[in-house]
Structure formats: structure tokens, C-alpha cells
Computed example of a mutant assay.
Amino acid sequence: MCPQLPPSPPRWHAVFYPFNTITWSALAATLIIITFFFHLLISTDSSVVYNHKIDVVSTLVWMTRVLLSQAVPHIPSSPGTRPFLVCWWLMSLVLAASYVTNIIAYITVPDPPAKINTLRELANSIHPLYMGDYGTFVPRYLATSHDPVYRRLSQKLHLIQNYSEIKSYVLENNGAFIEGTAYMEYEISSWPVRGMYYLEETLFPYTTAWAFQKGTPWVDTFNRYLRRMVESGLVDRWRNEEILRYRKSQGRVTTKERSTRRRLRPLSLEDLQSAFYILGLGYLISTLTVGIEVAYNNHSNFRLW
């Protein structure tokens, strides 16, 4: 069993989610490089392209307009600029459309919090590992394993003498809990905590058996039919039905059952607050720019932008 799900990030972070870090970095680097080369192309252009003196910052702002779906009033007449702009504008339109569609998808159907899906991720996480001290098989199995992931799990494993105290240790330290799959699915239903989940990857497989007295003559016949029930999935189905019935009797349902009941909700101001943050940042930058220009104009005739 893995620790509780991490809290969802603030909704205003949605402005960064349409692209990953590598894409944002590549976009910024591409914009800077293209701005530099385009500035060299139009440095000899005598036509009016901007509303003020041509410089690198103005070129950067002008090149960014298409990314923000803003039209350009004039196009430079220097040779080679139009094919250059066609390629850049086509790329900008694709990026802008991808960003808008991705952010709409995230706002309407937000991604669930990131889970730990493998034992390697659990071993590399900061979460401690707990289990009841009822034998040395599992600790020795982890410590002597040839797999480095199992050895890392052994280093962060804590054995609890009193089994009834495991719940408090796990909840207070946001840790993970090692226990048999069937027992854990029953045990967790009595815990007053939601958001905990199971790691699908197991330490070692478990078997299902039917005990008979030694020398029973019909063992082979039972083995044949038991194997058919296991291979057909009947055993797993019966087990899941029993666990679901028990969890419902405890007032708790499984994650799969909750996920089928998708709750639709209207958009709120919290979903759109990133746009107001960007607007406020733009106003702040504009105010600072105006203040700097006014300060320079009061002391000289030089304009900064």
C-alpha cells in the first residue's frame, strides 16, 4: 500500500501544463535565436515596421505577437523576410493552437495527482516503508536480493513490533505499508483515510491453495479443476466481489468504482485565475517600462525602447 495521494497543485498552474519543461525551454531558445537573425535581416529596412525605433527588444516583441494571436500591421520589405516570416508564423499558429487546446483539456478534465506506480519509484521516494515484525523472511529477502531496488527498499524498511500501531506510523509519516494483498484490501477499508492506494507491482507473487490431508486420492482431480478456475479468472472475480462486498459494508468503495462516477462541475474563477495573474504581470511590466521611459526622458532625450 502506498502513501496518501499528494494534494492537487493550485489551479493557476494550469498555464504551464500544456507544454512540458523541455518544450518551454526549446520555445524560448528558438524565439531568441529567430529574433536575432530576423533583426539582422531587417536592420537595413527603411520601411516602418514598428511604432518606434527598431532594436532587438522591439523585434522580440514583434515576433511574439503571432504566438499571442495578435495581428501585425506591417510586414518588412527586406529581401528574404517574407519566406522567413511564413515559416515562423506557421510554427507559431501550430504552437498557439496546441497550447489553447491543451489548456482547455486540462481545465475541463484535470489530471489526477501523480502516483507511485513501480517499486523503483517507491525506493527512490522520500516515503518511509513499514511492516509488522512477524518474521524475517521479507526483510532478509529484500536485504539479500540481487536487485538494487529491493536493497534500497530494505534500507528504508521499518519493523513495527506492535501491529496495531502501524496505522499511526503510516499516517503520521506519510509512509508505505507492506502486507499481503488480500489482507491489505480488507484492512485499509477500516482506516479513516481516503486517498491511499495500492501499488500494482508486488514484491513477490502469491498463490491460492486448497489444503487436503496428506495422501488424499482426489488431489489430482481437484488440482485440475482449481487450475481451470484460476486460468479462467473465476478466482480473481470471486475474490474481488468478496472484497467489494466487505468494503461496501464498511461504507467505503474501491477507487475503480469511484472513478466510474465522473462528476461534472462548472468552471470557476479558480480555474481561470492564471489569466488574471498574467494580466497583472503584464500591467506591472508596462508600468515599470513607462516609469523608466519617463525617468530617462526627464534627464535626456534618449528613449530606452
Rank of each mutant, 00 (worst) to 15 (best):
M1Y: 08
C2Q: 08
C2L: 15
P7T: 10
S8R: 14
A14G: 09
F19M: 05
F19T: 00
A26T: 11
L27W: 04
L27E: 05
A28V: 12
T30K: 14
T35F: 02
T35M: 00
T35I: 03
T35L: 01
F37R: 08
L40H: 08
L41H: 00
T44N: 11
T44E: 05
S47E: 05
Y50Q: 06
Y50E: 10
N51D: 14
N51P: 01
H52Q: 12
K53I: 10
D55N: 15
T59S: 09
L60T: 09
W62F: 04
W62I: 03
V66F: 11
L67G: 06
Q70F: 11
A71V: 10
I75H: 14
I75C: 13
L85F: 07
W88G: 05
W89G: 06
I103A: 07
I104K: 06
I107N: 05
V109Y: 14
V109H: 15
P110K: 09
D111S: 12
P113N: 05
K115P: 03
N117D: 14
T118F: 02
T118A: 00
L122P: 00
S125V: 03
P128R: 04
P128Q: 02
L129K: 04
L129G: 01
L129F: 03
Y130F: 11
M131D: 01
G135E: 00
F137Q: 10
V138K: 09
P139C: 01
Y141T: 03
L142V: 02
L142W: 01
A143E: 13
T144H: 13
T144V: 09
D147P: 03
P148I: 02
Y150V: 03
R151K: 06
R151C: 04
L153D: 03
L157F: 00
H158R: 11
I160S: 03
Y169C: 08
V170L: 10
L171C: 07
L171D: 13
M184C: 13
E185R: 14
S189Y: 07
V193G: 06
V193W: 08
R194Q: 12
M196I: 07
Y197V: 04
Y197N: 04
L199G: 00
E200S: 12
E200W: 09
T202P: 08
F204A: 04
F204D: 05
P205D: 02
A209N: 06
W210P: 06
A211H: 06
F212P: 03
P217L: 08
P217Q: 09
W218K: 10
V219G: 07
R224M: 05
Y225A: 01
S232R: 03
V235F: 02
D236P: 02
D236N: 07
R237P: 04
R237S: 15
R237W: 05
W238V: 14
W238I: 13
W238C: 12
E241A: 10
I243G: 00
R245A: 14
R247Y: 06
R252I: 10
T254H: 06
T255S: 13
K256P: 01
S259F: 09
S259W: 11
R261H: 15
R262E: 11
S268M: 07
L269I: 10
D271W: 00
L272A: 04
F276E: 15
Y277Q: 11
Y277T: 12
G282V: 09
Y283V: 13
L284K: 05
I292G: 07
V294P: 08
H299N: 13
F302G: 11
